[in-house]
């Protein structure tokens, strides 16, 4: 069925794009209730998180259970800079990403020599360390009391304070991040990432600096996670260390794996499903999470490549048409 949807989407690219765009833009009208709009905003934030984790896991074949820690670093960075220094949102947002990316690069330098199980636990330990430091550095982070009163973002003097406006802003960033990652995917750097996922020795023999590219991929993924953190902090306006623990990392990882590792659309599908699921099954009360665990197991057992993933190990969708597209652009260049 997924294949048919894909085929249909490819055939009617323009129509589908317009329809999806219209749907996304009209969501505040369709949903109506602020509660559901809140869910929509969180979906956008988690789309950024899962897509950026996919960059690490799906592209380069590494692993990270520290993703929520970088999300947290971004959130705290932006929150503290705007409260204590009074910097505007448009400056704290990139700074949050850069700080998360920098720390990601340092952690990457330390841990990316590890393999499989060791990398899993190494990153898990780093994630916990970040949380513990936030929890105990009370002079800066107020520790377990968290940081309340984070201001709404102000962009060119316009305060984004209601859910509808916030939704459009977060949607904008989510779309940008997905598009950037897609562009990366079809570039020299993206191909190097995927090559080292497929065969490190082969990639090194082709001149790819394996370790450097791993660190870049990791840092870049962390950068986007930091951006997501800043968007989150100014939305909920109160953050504390326990919002960025291992369970969040697990949730993001699950979105990636459930949606489809290594594909662009997969993490988006995963994020939407995992965020909508608890809302749909609210009537089940405490049995909801039992069902959640059960569904996770069943989907992984019968569709290990993920719902929107492709058959095979970590397949990558290749757009046959793109060869011809490039050719077309070549003639265009010649004409010009």
């Amino acid at each position: 069925m997924i294949a048919e949807i894909k085929k249909f989407a490819e055939k009617n690219k323009l129509v589908v794009t317009i329809a999806v765009a219209a749907l996304l833009l009209l969501i505040p009208l369709i949903l109506g209730s602020p509660y559901l709009l809140r869910v929509a905003i969180m979906i956008c934030i988690f789309v950024i998180l899962s897509s950026s984790l996919n960059l690490i896991i799906g592209f380069t074949g590494m692993f990270s259970l520290a993703h929520a820690a970088f999300y947290g670093i971004g959130a705290y960075c932006s929150a503290l800079l705007s409260i204590k220094v009074g910097l505007p949102f448009l400056i704290t947002l990139p700074l949050a990403g850069i700080l998360a990316g920098l720390i990601g690069a340092i952690i990457g330098l330390a841990t990316l020599r590890l393999r499989e199980t060791f990398l899993v636990f190494g990153t898990l330990a780093f994630g916990e360390i970040v949380r513990i430091v936030i929890m105990n550095w009370t002079s800066l982070t107020r520790g377990p009391m968290g940081i309340p009163g984070i201001p709404f973002p102000k962009i060119f003097g316009f305060e984004i304070s209601n859910y509808t406006h916030y939704y459009y802003m977060v949607l904008f960033f989510a779309v940008i991040v997905v598009l950037l990652i897609r562009r990366l995917y079809n570039s020299r750097v993206g191909r190097a990432f995927i090559a080292l996922r497929e065969d490190e020795t082969g990639a090194a023999s082709m001149g790819v600096n394996v370790f450097a590219y791993k660190v870049w991929a990791f840092a870049l993924g962390c950068f986007f996670a930091g951006i997501a953190g800043a968007l989150y902090a100014h939305f909920v306006r109160y953050i504390s260390a326990d919002q960025f623990g291992v369970n969040e990392s697990f949730a993001i990882l699950t979105m990636v794996a459930l949606g489809g590792t290594g594909s662009i659309i997969g993490p988006i599908v995963g994020a939407v499903i995992l965020m909508v699921f608890p809302e749909l099954f609210r009537f089940l009360a405490e049995y909801r999470m039992v069902l959640y665990g059960l569904i996770l197991i069943v989907i992984m057992m019968f569709k290990p490549e993920g719902i929107a993933g492709f058959k095979g190990m970590f397949p990558r969708d290749f757009d046959m048409m793109s060869i011809f597209k490039r050719k077309k652009s070549k003639t265009e260049v010649e004409e010009a």
Partner: peptide, 11 residues
């Protein structure tokens, strides 16, 4: 893939 097993145990 390795990750599928991992997610399954997480489940």
């Amino acid at each position: 893939p390795h990750i599928a097993s991992l997610i399954c145990t997480l489940g």
